[in-house]
Design a protein around this nucleic acid. Structure first.
Length: 417
RNA sequence: CGGAGUGUAGCGCAGUCUGGUAGCGCACCUGGUUUGGGACCAGGGGGUCGAAGGUUCGAGUCCUUUCACUCCGACCA
């Protein structure tokens, strides 16, 4: 992609309502844009691209372990929620409206009812179980107080998954499989996170674990061990405090976490309420044992930046980066710089590397500031030193600069990408 | 929903107290110069001052009503 053709409105101005780095940099970097309504954002091309990359990581790992992607209707008949009783329980967070025939609908904030409805219409026998269905699409929650940009919007991209089983044991097996799968997803995205025991909240059910991205700006207090992967929600681990020894012996530490994933052992709460049954081996109707598993995909973007930024801008992790490499031509009036930049750009494209070529008319400083703000992991800077036969290879994390000769730059890049 | 604020150009803000031709910075357009850390000069475009009503010769400014948004608290991926 050529920078000059890309819609990426970067800005020096800090939005007046932004306090978190992720909020500031996602807007300043032209990834997202405020709609004007509270907690509503447009995704511009670069933001959408990152969203899709993160989405794909989630999808790939889920599909690997047998989950199947679906897409339930965003608009849900309120009648389904009357069956579960949540239409009256859920409160004002639930956005309700009527169609032209005066029927009641809602914008789904989560889809237990809708998915149970799908399964009860489809699954009749224990032979068709287990089944794990998910979707990655928009959710709407009319939050009391939206804030922090993508961290707590009203409209957001969420992966919600639901599994159906003939026995509690099988549901628990799936629950642990999902825990392991979520760990792989968070690890691939380059996140420092902890899995903590949690309350089950509105959804209900017994066992429940939260995936917390460690960041000072998090809204949840958690207690963690830096020596092992222990972590617990403070509300749950009331007896523990900072300095206490962990089960591994190292001292515990208090910190903040961003909840980006949550998995539940649901049991039969929804299947019973919606009368969703299958015939078991004995030929008797039995309610599905269920698990439910969520990941805040758009919140992950914010979480990645909360954990990976400096005072200049974003530092995207490898799997989340909008481009693998950026090539910068410092001065487009220098024919040699342009020639080398175009050559490297064409070569990288040919190799299938997702590369951004900054060939704008601007001066070096402006382009560098934009590079730092946008946060592509690596850059090749073609500039003044080209007269000495040298270019620079920049690593965004730490802004280390390495001089590389023009003769060896191609091999240097091919080795790395 | 309680408490505190803010609505003026795409963004960030001044002007409101004390009524008198709507301003600044960034961004944008034209021309020229410039090109290693967000350039400079000259010219230019862009506003029913959140909305409605009122007071007044005259309202961004005063009064009334209303809407939206932000921040602090209780909820959540």
């Amino acid at each position: 992609m050529r920078f000059s053709k890309l819609l990426i409105p970067t800005s020096k101005e800090i939005p007046n309502d932004a306090t978190l780095p992720s909020h500031i940099y996602l807007i300043r970097g032209g990834f997202i844009q405020s709609v004007g309504g509270s907690g509503l954002y447009n995704f511009l091309p670069l933001g959408k691209k990152i969203l899709d990359k993160v989405r794909n990581v989630v999808k790939e790992e889920l599909d690997k372990v047998g989950c199947q992607e679906t897409s339930l209707s965003f608009v849900t008949p309120t009648a389904l929620w009357d069956e579960s009783g949540r239409a009256s329980e859920y409160g004002k967070e639930l956005l309700r409206f009527k169609d032209r025939k005066d029927n009641d609908y809602l914008l789904s904030p989560t889809n237990e009812e809708a998915m149970v409805n799908l399964v009860r219409q489809t699954i009749k026998s224990y032979k068709q179980l287990p089944l794990n269905l998910y979707q990655i699409n928009l959710k709407f929650r009319d939050e009391i107080r939206p804030r922090f940009g993508l961290m707590r919007g009203r409209e957001f991209l969420m992966k919600d998954g639901y599994s159906f089983h003939a026995s509690v044991e099988d549901m628990q097996r799936e629950f642990y499989l999902m825990e392991e799968t979520y760990k792989k997803i968070f690890t691939r995205l380059g996140l420092n996170f902890r899995v903590v025991q949690a309350d089950s909240g509105q959804i209900g059910g017994d066992g429940s674990k939260e995936f917390m991205i460690l960041a000072d700006s998090g809204e949840d207090d958690i207690i963690v061990c830096d020596a092992c992967d222990f972590g617990a929600n403070v509300e749950v681990a009331k007896e523990s405090k900072a300095g206490d020894p962990c089960q591994c012996g190292a001292p515990l530490r208090m910190t903040k976490g961003i909840e980006a994933g949550h998995i539940f052992q649901l049991g039969t709460k929804y299947s019973e309420a919606l009368n969703a049954t299958f015939l078991n081996e004995g030929g008797k109707a039995q309610a599905f044992e269920m698990g439910t598993y969520g990941i805040g995909v758009s919140r992950l973007l914010a979480g990645i930046i909360e954990q990976n930024h400096d005072d200049k801008g974003c530092i995207w992790t490898q799997e989340s980066a909008p481009f693998a490499l950026q090539i910068m031509i410092s001065n487009i009036k220098d024919e040699n710089q342009v020639a080398l930049g175009e050559k490297l750009y064409a070569l990288m494209l040919e190799k299938g590397i997702d590369v951004l070529l900054d060939e704008r008319k601007d001066r070096f400083g402006a382009k560098m500031k934009d590079y730092e703000l946008i946060g592509v992991p690596f850059a090749v800077v073609i500039g003044k030193n080209l007269t000495d036969g040298m270019v620079e290879f920049v690593t965004r994390d730490g802004m280390q600069k390495e001089s590389v000769s023009v003769e060896s730059i191609v091999d240097f890049l091919l080795e790395r990408f």
